[in-house]
């Protein structure tokens, strides 16, 4: 059911781990739904110098975490903010429809980590685009 790319990123996840004293952290999802992603950022000169993730979840959750972190590494915070879930899913060669929420979760995790960085630095958090998809918006397990 998963593409080769998804399986590759699941079996050999990139950027998995934790950053000591990160500049920004974003944790999204909840254990009730069966997926939690935690994104750690190291920011230098407004760029994502390093990024790591920890994920509790299915194959797609791990693979999207891995791909999303790959895609934002080295980008400016603004570029990283603009990374959409569909780009992550496409980069993985597509996701089964029931797994698309995993890619949304990855986007939300990156956003949350960026805003954590911004707030820590006395900046206004950025707003989600109006109508942006939410990982668990219509699901019964919403905590």
């Amino acid at each position: 059911m998963y593409s080769e790319k998804v399986m590759d990123h699941f079996m050999n996840p990139r950027n998995q781990g934790e950053i000591e004293d990160p500049d920004g952290v974003g944790e999204v999802g909840n254990p009730k739904c069966g997926d939690i992603m935690k994104i750690f950022l190291r920011v230098r000169d407004d760029r994502v110098e390093d990024v790591k993730f920890q994920t509790f979840g299915c194959g797609a959750a791990v693979a999207t975490s891995s791909m999303a972190t790959e895609l934002v590494k080295g980008k400016t915070l603004e570029e990283a903010w603009d990374l959409s879930n569909t780009v992550v899913a496409e980069a993985l060669g597509g996701l089964p429809p029931v797994k698309m929420h995993c890619s949304v979760l990855a986007e939300e995790g990156i956003h949350k980590a960026i805003n954590d960085y911004r707030v820590r630095h006395g900046l206004e958090p950025w707003d989600e685009k109006p109508g942006a998809p939410k990982a668990h918006s219509n699901e019964t397990c919403e905590a």
Partner: peptide
């Protein structure tokens, strides 16, 4: 797990015996 059932809820049997979702 939910992910094998195509929903976000885990097995109703496991919930019925009192297991927390996670």
């Amino acid at each position: 797990s939910a992910c094998t059932s195509g929903s976000l809820d885990p097995s109703y049997v496991l919930l019925a015996i009192g297991l927390p979702h996670e």
